[in-house]
Design a protein around this nucleic acid. Structure first.
Lengths: 119, 119
DNA sequence: CAGTATCCTTGTTGATACTG
DNA sequence: CAGTATCAACAAGGATACTG
């Protein structure tokens, strides 16, 4: 149980930080990429096989964004053919519990909708 | 401390639920709207004043989406002029801790970037 | 293997004017 | 007050071909 918040949730810092977080997390494949990297470091080709619907272009683009934000580390082993390994940075690791919470919430949400016979 | 997960995070159900959650949360003004509704029910005009950068069209559109997903309840009081009040549903309430976590994470993230002198 | 480059389609957001 | 309707602008994503 987290400690009670005494300030209104919509104070300026709070909403600014909220938007920062969601901006980093926004992107069609970002949560999926993070979920896979949460299992450990992966090579580019491994990620591609885990996410067959994502084109190389999009996978590269979103990984580069995550790298720019220091969420993901990109390690290049200069070999021929090249080997590139992606992994979560320490601050990236700290996003993982949030992914769990979202997944848990969705689970409950989907169950509720089933119960009510919606959709 | 949440209990240890024994399954790989990227198993099918997990990733599906992850995407459901993030789909509901996606939309430029969604987190902000939810943050304000977390403080209690608000009328349309109140929300507008709290979010002056959001056009009426976008505010309506995103509120209607949240209503469609049963995250938000829309109560119309048939008066002239009309009064419409928006509030979080029970399952919508359960999203609030996730917003807190994202904001907390961002706070830590921004501090770290400051420390490292990045950006 | 791990990308880039280019072009194109689609989805999202915004500006503005109008309404019960 | 709480919206709609219409159109325009822009951003995000995808298909395909090429490369060190």
């Amino acid at each position: 149980m987290p400690e009670e918040r005494t300030h209104k949730v919509s104070c300026t810092n709070y909403t600014y930080e909220l938007e920062v977080g969601f901006e980093i997390l926004s992107g069609k494949w970002i949560p999926l990429i993070l979920a896979h990297l949460a299992d450990g470091p992966h090579r580019f080709g491994q990620l591609r096989r885990l996410m067959p619907d994502v084109t190389k272009k999009m996978l590269t683009q979103q990984l580069r964004n995550l790298e720019k934000y220091s969420i993901v580390h990109r390690e290049v082993y200069p070999q021929v053919p090249p080997v590139v390994e992606y992994s979560l940075t320490p601050i990236g690791q700290k996003l993982v519990p949030i992914l769990h919470h979202v997944s848990d919430w969705s689970h409950e949400y989907l169950q509720l909708r089933d119960q009510l016979g919606l959709n």
